[in-house]
Design a protein around this nucleic acid. Sequence first.
DNA 1: TATAGTGATGTTACCGGTAACAGAAAAATA
DNA 2: TATTTTTCTGTTACCGGTAACATCACTATA
Lengths: 344, 344
Amino acid sequence: MKITLRDIAKMAGVSHMTVSRVINHDSMVRPEIRKKVMDVIEECDYTPNMSARALNSGETKVMGVLVLYDPEEFPAYFLTTILVGISSLLTKDEYHLSLHFDQLHKVRNLVPGHLLTDNRMDGLFVISAENNEFLLERLSAIRLPIVVVNQQVPMSGVSCIDSDEYSGAYAITTHLLRNGRRRIGFIGGTPSYNSTNMRQRGYEAALVDFGLRSDPALCGVGYFSSTGGREAAKKIIALQAGVDAIFAASDLMAVGAMSAVYEAGLTIPGDIALAGFDDNEFSKAAYPPLTTVRKNRSQMGVEAAQAMLDILARKKAGGAPLVVRKTLPTELVVRESSGSALTG
Amino acid sequence: MKITLRDIAKMAGVSHMTVSRVINHDSMVRPEIRKKVMDVIEECDYTPNMSARALNSGETKVMGVLVLYDPEEFPAYFLTTILVGISSLLTKDEYHLSLHFDQLHKVRNLVPGHLLTDNRMDGLFVISAENNEFLLERLSAIRLPIVVVNQQVPMSGVSCIDSDEYSGAYAITTHLLRNGRRRIGFIGGTPSYNSTNMRQRGYEAALVDFGLRSDPALCGVGYFSSTGGREAAKKIIALQAGVDAIFAASDLMAVGAMSAVYEAGLTIPGDIALAGFDDNEFSKAAYPPLTTVRKNRSQMGVEAAQAMLDILARKKAGGAPLVVRKTLPTELVVRESSGSALTG
DNA sequence: TATAGTGATGTTACCGGTAACAGAAAAATA
DNA sequence: TATTTTTCTGTTACCGGTAACATCACTATA
């Protein structure tokens, strides 16, 4: 049914090894024979069988991506961008990308063999929001080269690429402070998430450096959802505590908070300046456009892919295992929701 | 280095075929021997090599997903949801999902062999917005079972799962009409996209059924982007043509249009009712919350996966090729942006 | 011219599973 | 007990590539 290398060989009147040499661009083939073989290959639409190749090379030319988010809090927009970034680099090296959602519990469920075990991929990207013990334990049990994307894991032997969310939060808070805001509320995401933590710490550090202190009453939790952001903002506003700005740890929550501000009959940025985090596709469409922090997610994917390729190259060369840990800069994106331009 | 079936056999003191039978749950093994083998397997963390399996079964247990969107207009949120849907079903059957972005030009670039050719996947999902000739031609050249997701292709022999966008657009336009709106503007997406077409036709049909006609002056193009939606809305508003509602063919454009309405000093829904399409995560967070049409994208993924499994099952059974064409219903989601409740 | 050296091609075995058949042991029947 | 049948286990070959080695033709060197 399917055409094999030996079929091509027969048709071209050569041995199967000659065909193998042709498709591998091995120089040891006379040009005329190479051409004859190539003609047959093209005529038959022949493509080598990757399973056979993988079987004796041990390389599958597949990279896995394990996505470990709760579907409820799934950052759809942001996942795709990372994937595009990873893919753009890997494609050049003819890798396929194998996508897996939240199958952590199956990682070591061995016998059926179709899971995240060594044989079906050469490396694994892990995209996760939390670094709980469960994750860390499991990661160390996987024998594959791993690159954790979007967060820094505490174990120093694990490669990871993340964004400098702390600095981003610090910068945006400072921006609000420079605009004259002094009572800045904070809406955090899901408490167990790493980014919640980082963003809050950046926020608090900026306040401290301005001689202020964060007021626990002004800090809410929005669980990274728009309704969560809205509810949290409502509570903060209801305090009548003179809040003049709200920094929400995600754009989605910021947009929710926007609604709450409007519902309270207040203006943005007149009464309350608003800032988000992420720079989603809809944050510049908000009214007013949302000041936020941009994570270059596509770049994060690219860097992760590069790290993986480097790690595999090193492994192939037999060197000591390479560990890549990189934190990419974030960028403050000033739009109208945060009020007038810098005053100094 | 890596443990193979024969290693296990040696350790357990049986032949490799016995091990093969154990991992395939073949009944022809005495319980005591099965246990002995299983113990060794677990102790060694053995997993069968999928490349070897694929090599003689011909089944790779991998499904490909080809995403054919312009990165600029990339529907990030919606892609992920479809993927989760597909994945949820395929995972049960132990398939892996292999993700590919816009590599159409490589589909037949044969020799390197790491591309979208027959040998690395058992089936292919194509997620695309347009059905241009280029796509159709290429699709017919692929020998793999294909399911097109998110649009209906004209060739009747190709399986596809889409949403009833026409009816959705019809329903939401009717909803605006029932709310007393009579001068309803329309903002279309990228003209070449199928959904642009469907949504506009639904809009026009509703007008006609209400004894009205669409006014070309009130129809803009927003290219599915928020700024596009905003610009288009600006133009429509500037006409001073008594527009009392705008139906944008995507939520993102609708949110852009919202800004334009506010910038013009008008109210929503007081002066202008607004409606979108998609039901994105941010549409309910908008102020006011956006009336829209929900496409059950996750369900679309599930249905596509089921179709693919059915097609493969049929193929395996040697029956005539199965073609599945299914249009899933859409759902009108009424929120505040479209004005007061039905008046009749 | 004999010999070594080089370039091009073919032969064989192997990667790690599974199918198909062969063979041995246990159970059923005569 | 002998024979047939059934149940279980082992042997061999094969899937479609590639590595390693063998072979052969032809050129360069002695």
